[in-house]
Design a protein around this nucleic acid. Sequence first.
DNA 1: AATGAATGAGTCTTCATTCAT
DNA 2: GATGAATGAAGACTCATTCAT
Lengths: 202, 202, 202, 202
Amino acid sequence: MAGLAEIKQQEREARRGLILVAAQKLFAEKDFKSVTVREIARTAGVSIGTIYNYYENLDELFVDVFIRGAREIVELLDAETQGDRPCSLARLCEVYIAYLNENMTFYQMMSHFMLGGRLSEEATQRLNRVTRELLDRVVSTIEAAGIRSETRLTAQALFSALNGIMISYATYPGRSLEEIQRHTARLARLVANLFLQQAKSQ
Amino acid sequence: MAGLAEIKQQEREARRGLILVAAQKLFAEKDFKSVTVREIARTAGVSIGTIYNYYENLDELFVDVFIRGAREIVELLDAETQGDRPCSLARLCEVYIAYLNENMTFYQMMSHFMLGGRLSEEATQRLNRVTRELLDRVVSTIEAAGIRSETRLTAQALFSALNGIMISYATYPGRSLEEIQRHTARLARLVANLFLQQAKSQ
Amino acid sequence: MAGLAEIKQQEREARRGLILVAAQKLFAEKDFKSVTVREIARTAGVSIGTIYNYYENLDELFVDVFIRGAREIVELLDAETQGDRPCSLARLCEVYIAYLNENMTFYQMMSHFMLGGRLSEEATQRLNRVTRELLDRVVSTIEAAGIRSETRLTAQALFSALNGIMISYATYPGRSLEEIQRHTARLARLVANLFLQQAKSQ
Amino acid sequence: MAGLAEIKQQEREARRGLILVAAQKLFAEKDFKSVTVREIARTAGVSIGTIYNYYENLDELFVDVFIRGAREIVELLDAETQGDRPCSLARLCEVYIAYLNENMTFYQMMSHFMLGGRLSEEATQRLNRVTRELLDRVVSTIEAAGIRSETRLTAQALFSALNGIMISYATYPGRSLEEIQRHTARLARLVANLFLQQAKSQ
DNA sequence: AATGAATGAGTCTTCATTCAT
DNA sequence: GATGAATGAAGACTCATTCAT
């Protein structure tokens, strides 16, 4: 039987989720920098103050949005596994880049935090935890592809390379969204092949 | 004999350089986002208005700082060439990552523009020009390393991968600067080897 | 019993009024163009930000000041009515010109908006509404004076003529305030007679 | 034989005219407030400094543009005279309003000076002189129309009324330029008739 | 006399965060 | 716990005017 405290806790989680989803929705719609607290509050149907009841500051909320995105990617990758066989390395790259192309927020936030977003110790740890989770999938895929040595480092390199593709080419001026998607996908395939080559040579 | 116009032009270049250096200095010292026009003006020893005489807006100045950085990298790479043999692929990665580690501004600016800095057509073109120049060096190095097919795309992939390493790990929370430098360098070596492997297999 | 929402609304109105009065006071004291947000905020005893909580931008505040002025004129005119008989045409001109002479802001704002102050759709409509109200009084007076045809257009012509007197002679250089008041009043009487003549001839 | 001093003086006048025409051209093209010294200088093909050699400040230049406009109106009116008979009162109103509709600058400047443009004693006098010239034409027309008493004051009233029409209705929001022209012309006709009525009754 | 780069005070506006209710 | 109005520091940018060349 659930105690009162437990119910309260559930309510709290629910409301927190409301805010989170509203933020994610807004980030999906528009530029990262143009989303304001006021707007998030309005979209979530709560007051500004409430947001600060659940999040110490905006950056903490951003972390949650980021984490949620990372989870979605993890789930997308898990959905690709056949039994306990992870998806192919090529497929992983494809899925990851496709997600990033559809969720600009994701790497925009990476950039934001890199540009000096300050995080609480706790948020940093949650961030690390989910990143590790994501990286675990990359490691599995890499191993399944036949890479044996320095798998963690290699996974980090692959992860970096994919992020780098988006950072470097996702807002290439004068190119249509479709062209960008095609180009980033192409680069992702090239990168995937690079790592596969590595696997074969071992 | 230098005409008057020529002298004026030189003076103009000089003053523009003054502003540029001041901005670069400030960016090196502190966070990209916390640098203000007022501060740049004071550091350069000119008035705020003067900055706007030389640059339409701050982003145009940022582009110049960025370009200057890119030029420095190009020069560093050119200094590594032996006759007409470009430096090794490994060395290129090392030099590039080292420079980025010492000039956070550089990829902070990449991020800034990615997050929606608006540029004039002219600035965009200058930006593209220097990026192409940099990429040309990467292409040369890649070719010298023995890669034959899709060299431009491969160069882009390498360039992306190196940027991605910095974006993903340059501000890793809880790590010392030294640790970060070591780790990014290590990832860069791994990436370099990946591309070399590719070369051998052709 | 007043609900909480109602009280809140009243408070809001009150504060908005505070800002409005402060602005009006400043406009009365000094030149329209030299009034700043900072000053209005200080005079109203609120922060700058608060002003922007109540008004989207300064021009919207200006509209409110303008509207308040128009209302005052309407009230002055209504106070002149005897039962349901509007005041005489001559009296209307006299009252209007006298008010304008004491509230330079009023036609300075007309000019400001004419010189390109940008207004929201909503503000434009409020502006139109109060102008129509004012014009309605003019129409009534004109009709009471015996003018039968094209009363609305005639009212507009009278309204224009009175405004024109102020625009053309209210800041006539080298004349004392008193001289200006006498002269504009004289012109207003002449204009009034013109319209009365018109009435008689019908 | 023209002395050197005289030639110099002519050159000076010519250059001053160049600046004047450039300013007038710009004012005709765009909003009064958005014209800058830099732009005038560029359009006139002279330097900013040169403008200040010919005009103490911008407002003095504006006065000249204004005067030039007033002269054009005077010439238009004079062109309408038959022998020594001035044009009809109705025609005067029509011509004046038409000119104002095509030269927004003209009454925008009236407003500008009214909003506190500071003028030198000399500029004020030149301004008065040309205004008097313009008013003289109005007086003539009024007299020719049969008005005998207080002709100067009546002319001022007519002048004011026409200005007022433009001030009040020239930027009426939500109306096309054509509609505005039609409406102001209509009001001008009404005003003209008012004054004619007055003439007849004398 | 002509030049035009330098000046800088002063402008409006933004928006994350606080805190009294 | 929820609210949302108040806060105000901080930002980029403008542009008439000056003055050394």
